[in-house]
Nucleic acid binder design. Structure first.
Lengths: 94, 94
DNA sequence: CTTGCATTTAGACGTTTACCTAATTATCTC
DNA sequence: GAGATAATTAGGTAAACGTCTAAATGCAAG
């Protein structure tokens, strides 16, 4: 989980996620939208992928990125768990 | 929002939140549970407070910390918004 | 108002992070 | 295989972060 939270701690990476929310994008399409070198964006993509937040698939010479909604949901659950007041032994949780 | 995500990026800080979930604690009570200097814990508390995730109130010579569930909820909303596929203008959202 | 406890602030130091440019890998086309 | 394009990896640097010890602050009690 640590990697996931760390991945969210950067504004560029959150913006990438926001971009991907509207549809899959290739690395190049993503990098174009940012004022930094492609290499830097590539690092961010690697961090997000390592955190499990996005998925990458090669398509010819392009690499297409997409949101991993599964991990996103787990993250939201974990976050909610952090704030939830403890109740008497949730017995498996509803 | 940036500060909030950054605050969550550290395991010690997440553990502090988890502690506070079970009830308010003074700075000292919190610091005791960690293997680092009190000053370090104090820095983490400051970061969490700055991020709005916790609230501090002085009680005599102690300072009592508690979760700020309001900001927590906003954060969860924001996070969900990051992953949610775009729909046509949510008009205030249910 | 001085002493003592709880907590924070100041200053220093090593590690991690984000960025850059240059070099490399992977794929496609000829 | 050579050349072009897409993307990553390598190597370096400056800023941010987490930690420490020491000093300062806030409050309470003699």
């Amino acid at each position: 989980m640590d990697k996931t939270y760390k991945a969210l701690a950067d504004p560029t990476r959150r913006e990438i996620l926001s971009l991907l929310k509207d549809g899959d994008r290739t690395a190049g399409e993503i990098a174009e939208g940012f004022p930094m070198a492609w290499a830097s964006v590539s690092h961010h993509l690697a961090a997000l992928k390592d955190a499990g937040l996005i998925l990458a698939t090669r398509e010819g010479q392009h690499i297409r990125y997409s949101l991993n909604t599964t991990v996103f949901q787990e993250l939201v659950q974990h976050l909610i768990g952090l704030a939830q007041k403890k109740r008497g032994r949730p017995r498996k949780e509803a």
